[in-house]
């Protein structure tokens, strides 16, 4: 199985990058794909708080941490790596990956590289796409529209689409539905993965006694995200059963 790296990021803050990274880890875990996470919110990591056993906090600009991630891609037992890029760090992270030769290795077919570019509801998010375009040629580049609040998402009208997408090739878009505030807050307080919250367990595996209503909302929300990941064939990309499955069609 070829090692895969899933980079979750955005150059804009507050768009829910870590939420997506957590959902990705939950999805992979629930499909028996063992994954490891790297949280680049150095020195304190939010992803690490929810998935401490499979996540490390790293500084992506530090050579030793770059080695820790990239030099172990081939040797680690775990073949899927999820990197949660800190706010505003997507361009820098991609630049660092280019500087280390990782993008060349992806071009040579050594690794699968997936980028989940999490977009906010403002047009500023679209400007990021242009900046990232030079780095995504060999990646499976997904645009993730994350409905973190009730604001209306910008519409993908034809003019906007043409302006921003003529220079970038994407593997598709994903839409992440909104989770109501109270459910989200309760998971935050619990400090456990979404799936653990749904199962009404604490981090130690004890019964948590959470509200069934809140767990129900989280379960439905998580299922809808899983439907989106299924739709873009995420499993086929990170753990292809045959050569064809790894080559998801790209759309312009």
């Amino acid at each position: 199985m070829k090692p895969s790296v899933i980079l979750v990021g955005a150059d804009k803050g507050g768009v829910g990058k870590t939420t997506i990274a957590r959902a990705v880890l939950d999805y992979l875990n629930s499909n028996n794909i063992v994954a490891r996470g790297f949280d680049t919110e150095f020195p304190r990591g939010t992803l690490n708080r929810f998935h401490p056993e499979q996540t490390s906090v790293v500084d992506l600009t530090s050579t030793s941490d770059q080695m820790r991630i990239l030099d172990t891609l081939n040797t680690a037992q775990v073949k899927v790596t999820v990197i949660d890029v800190r706010a505003g760090g997507l361009s820098l992270a991609l630049q660092a990956l280019e500087d280390t030769g990782f993008l060349d290795a992806v071009h040579a077919g050594e690794f699968n590289f997936l980028i989940f570019h999490v977009l906010g509801s403002s047009i500023a998010s679209l400007d990021e796409i242009e900046e990232i375009a030079p780095f995504v040629e060999d990646a499976h580049y997904f645009l993730v529209k994350n409905h973190v609040n009730d604001t209306t998402f910008f519409e993908w009208d034809p003019l906007t689409h043409t302006k921003y997408f003529e220079k970038v090739m994407t593997s598709g878009e994903m839409t992440i539905p909104k989770l109501n505030e109270m459910s989200y807050e309760q998971v935050e307080i619990a400090g456990v993965p979404f799936s653990t919250f749904v199962a009404d367990r604490t981090a130690e595996g004890e019964p948590a006694g959470q509200s069934f209503v809140l767990r129900g909302y989280v379960r439905t929300w998580l299922n809808r995200i899983a439907d989106e990941f299924d739709r873009v064939q995420l499993l086929g990309l990170v753990a292809p059963r045959d050569a064809k499955a790894g080559k998801a069609g790209k759309e312009r």
Binding site: N180, M182, S183, S211, F212, V213, L214, G216
Partner: peptide
């Protein structure tokens, strides 16, 4: 209201 939902559905179960 989600608080009402919690009272209701958690109570029913």
């Amino acid at each position: 209201d989600i608080r009402g939902q919690i009272v209701l559905f958690d109570g029913l179960l």
